[in-house]
């Protein structure tokens, strides 16, 4: 049995214009930040988008949060086309999709008390009675491991880990169906990361909320995600269930990412596969397969024909001419 996924993205593209000139600016090119990606997230599960800077993972998150309009393609949340919503339905959408950002030092307003920060999604998008807001805030703070009386404090009175708990509380308060987690632990200290990751996993089990996890740290995705999509220059190179991907990474770029990851023990020696060069500019991405200039297995065909996604196992798709 397979339920309708909470989130479905189809052929999503976002191109930003590159302009020249101040007053009569002309478009001289396009940054193809996201260039035709499709994925879906079932209820209560986590999809991780992994890739290096500039691969389009944050733009994808913005498209889903409706902070950017797509150039083409659609996002469906709960069966509704996100970018066609307006009025009350849009307000409702804003409560069922929430976000937690990387840096809790800049994502929480320093002039609001914790109570106001946490209650904001309820107050802005759902007209909830004051007494109910109060009890809901107290309940959520308890769930994320803060004390109810801390609702009166300001963000600067908390440590980084606690601030991230406040951000999680604020994301959870309106009973969302999907939370976009944009590098939720990378700004935190090592011993605090484990606390927040455990918390996020527990809350998912408890509330059945789905996560879109944006991460660059592979070990984090192995711990948190059910499915992983590897992005490179605006495209998904490989997508598979987490266990399958970690057992059998197939795309050369995925393999390179895995070999570049730091070992957990000095005796773990990974096969060295160090890529030459850096990620090319998304303004003028390479022809054919975008990875071909850096790929150690490059073939003549790679520069000409763009590989299509191909299933190599159940729930395992690769876009590469090797398969």
């Amino acid at each position: 049995m397979r339920a309708e996924p909470i989130l479905r993205a189809e052929g999503l593209k976002k191109h930003f214009p590159v302009t020249e000139g101040l007053l009569w600016s002309t478009v001289v090119g396009w940054v193809k930040a996201v260039d035709g990606i499709s994925f879906s997230i079932p209820q209560g599960q986590t999809l991780a988008l992994v890739g290096e800077s500039g691969c389009g993972k944050t733009t994808t998150a913005k498209l889903i949060l409706r902070l950017e309009e797509p150039t083409s393609g659609q996002v469906f949340v709960d069966g509704k086309n996100v970018h066609a919503l307006s009025g009350d339905v849009l307000k409702e959408y804003r409560t069922i999709v929430q976000a937690v950002f990387q840096d809790p030092w800049s994502s929480l307003s320093p002039r609001m008390r914790v109570r106001e920060i946490v209650a904001e999604p309820l107050v802005v998008n759902r007209r909830v009675a004051a007494a109910e807001v109060e009890s809901r805030v107290a309940e959520i703070l308890g769930r994320v491991g803060l004390r109810p009386e801390q609702a009166n404090l300001y963000p600067h009175e908390f440590s980084g880990g606690q601030r991230q708990r406040i951000a999680v509380a604020s994301a959870l308060v309106s009973d969302p169906k999907l939370i976009v987690l944009d590098e939720p632990v990378s700004a935190l200290d090592v011993s605090i990361r484990a606390q927040i990751m455990n918390l996020l996993v527990d809350l998912q089990k408890q509330y059945g909320v789905s996560y879109l996890l944006i991460a660059h740290h592979l070990a984090t995705t192995r711990f948190m995600a059910h499915e992983v999509a590897v992005m490179y220059l605006g495209k998904i190179m490989e997508r598979a269930k987490t266990e399958e991907l970690f057992k059998n990474p197939s795309h050369p770029y995925t393999k390179a990412l895995f070999s570049a990851a730091l070992p957990a023990h000095p005796d773990i020696v990974r096969e060295e596969m160090i890529l030459s060069g850096e990620v090319p500019s998304p303004i003028d991405p390479p022809s054919g397969c975008r990875f071909h200039p850096r790929c150690p297995f490059v073939m003549p065909r790679c520069a000409e024909v763009e590989p299509q996604e191909k299933a190599i196992a159940a729930d395992h798709v690769v876009a590469c001419h090797l398969y």
Binding site: G161, S191, A194, M197, N198, V201, A219, R222, F223, T242
Partner: peptide, 21 residues
């Protein structure tokens, strides 16, 4: 510290976490 870091090489159900700061 060593047991609170998730690893790529095996899946763990729960991370060890150090309470407090």
């Amino acid at each position: 510290l060593l047991s609170s870091v998730p690893t790529m090489d095996e899946r763990v159900e729960r991370l060890y976490s150090i309470a407090g700061q």
